[in-house]
Amino acid sequence: MPNVEINADDVMIQLKGLKKSFGKQAVLLDVNLDIRRGETMVIIGQSGSGKSVILKHMVGLLQPDEGEVTVDGITISTPKFFDTRTIRRKMGMLFQMGALFDSMDTGENIAFALREHHPELSEEEIQKVVTEKLKLINLVPEFRSKMPSELSGGMRKRVALARAIALSPEILLYDEPTTGLDPITSDVINDLILDMQRKLKMTSVVVTHDMVSAFKVADRIAMLYKGRIIEVGTVDEIKNTDNPFVRQFILGQRKIPTEE
């Protein structure tokens, strides 16, 4: 479990009464969640329950139908909010499939945003940062010349993580970081998530349905069920909860225990 001091009153990301529908399908009905500065919040829930939709609201990729998203005191869920660049430079996101830029090699993927946002950096300094980020994700600098198509699933996620932290964000969002990976590679990714928080003191939001990963990396866990957050608690609180829906999910049961 992460070991960083967290102040319960210092909220980094706040979701208030979030509602979102796609056509006739209502995905988020009323999502309320506070994520504290420096903590790792894991959002769990079934596939298709809207976990990634929550994440996309946090980074401004989606706008809510109703409700409010506040990041570091700035409400980003309003059409009047145009300064998305400022807030996005505080955030990094690891996409489910990595979302590496296929036409660029590993080094270019990591350096691209850096080069655009920091034109004052020399090429030598940029390469130094790339090497440093590759080291953080336990990859040797020689990896910089590999194309994304030459990388395995786990490697792609590690490179995507290096790209996400290239701009040294304060908040890191992980969209199903261990999905599609074998258990050992999953654990490597889990360790990296923990490392990121310990070394870089980031606020992390992890969306997953992998309970091994959730229990390992989380400070707190929130369960999304039928468009609402039905439980928020520490790992121990979630493990010992009486909520039948949460128990069903963490134990991986087909039926809700009370129905049996």
Partner: peptide, 16 residues
């Protein structure tokens, strides 16, 4: 295919 693989979103999130 870039949209499908979330590359377009990745550009946006990186502030590009």
């Amino acid at each position: 295919s870039m949209r499908e693989k979330e590359e377009l979103d990745a550009y946006t999130v990186l502030g590009l």
